[in-house]
Nucleic acid binder design. Structure first.
Lengths: 145, 145
DNA sequence: CTGTATGCAAAATCTTTGCAGCCTG
DNA sequence: CAGGCTGCAAAGATTTTGCATACAG
């Protein structure tokens, strides 16, 4: 099984909480948000009749991040969101009204970031770029008020 | 007095805590970090023999942000940092080892961000970009270990 | 004097940690 | 069977809020 191996190769024992959480992110159900907070994950699993502790969710998410399975994002919301690590780095466009998250990649910006870090003598570890605004749908809704 | 007027024109009463906090950011002492957390501000003021409450610091920082005097930044550290709002937007390069903060502006990136938001139909409210890495000094230190 | 501002303490959030028992390998 | 894993409860860290008193205008 794919997920089982993914866990094993990260040196993690295969347990129900881990399988379920991994599945949540990999399944990618239509309409399901790719970006989930610890609490989101916790509530979803409770809703699926799982008996799980919030502490376990935090621990698993942290382990998955260290294993490179997930990526942790710090947006302005105040709570961390996790998403599947699909290799290619990307940035986010977030709607301040509905919370929708749009992903995009811009090689030109990526390139400039590298140049800037170099110019300042930094060895770059991470890049984070987020744009906040009103999505098209919410612009209409907001205007109506 | 300049600071007094800055407060008045924001509709805020001129009080000692507000003057002191404003001064802290405007003074820009050599070696002093431009980016301060609520707790940083609190500790500095306590060190100056001021009798102030942490809650007041949080309230004042929030008010200053709403008045456009300060800008709030959410870096990965988990706590918000504030800096003087000097009009022109800029981004940050942070050392993950010593916490040094380097500021930079890149019109090319700024331009691309605008284009991206437009492409996705967003009305942009805010942009946040932070690069994390090892500064030149810390690269040397780290290598020695 | 009136209403805003302050300090203190308590509460609210999000996240981490300690511990005894459970389960994987 | 050993050591990692889990749930629960408690503790931490950061930020917000309620309230009585103090102070600016």
């Amino acid at each position: 099984m794919n997920q089982t191996n993914e866990l094993k190769s990260s040196g993690l024992k295969v347990t129900l909480p881990r399988l379920k959480i991994l599945e949540l992110f990999q399944k990618n159900l239509p309409g399901a948000e790719r970006h989930l907070s610890a609490d989101d994950v916790y509530k979803i699993l409770l809703g699926e009749q799982m008996d799980i502790g919030l502490a376990t969710v935090y621990r698993v998410l942290t382990q998955f991040e260290q294993a490179g399975i997930l990526v942790r994002r710090n947006f302005e919301s105040g709570k961390a969101l996790y998403e599947l690590n699909e290799g290619e780095p990307h940035d986010h466009l977030l709607c301040v009204n509905c919370g929708q998250v749009e992903e995009f990649t811009d090689p030109q910006i990526y390139e400039r970031q590298t140049e800037i870090a170099e110019k300042y003598g930094y060895v770059l570890h991470e890049r984070a770029m987020s744009l906040y605004g009103l999505c098209a749908t919410c612009q209409v809704k907001t205007k109506r008020r």
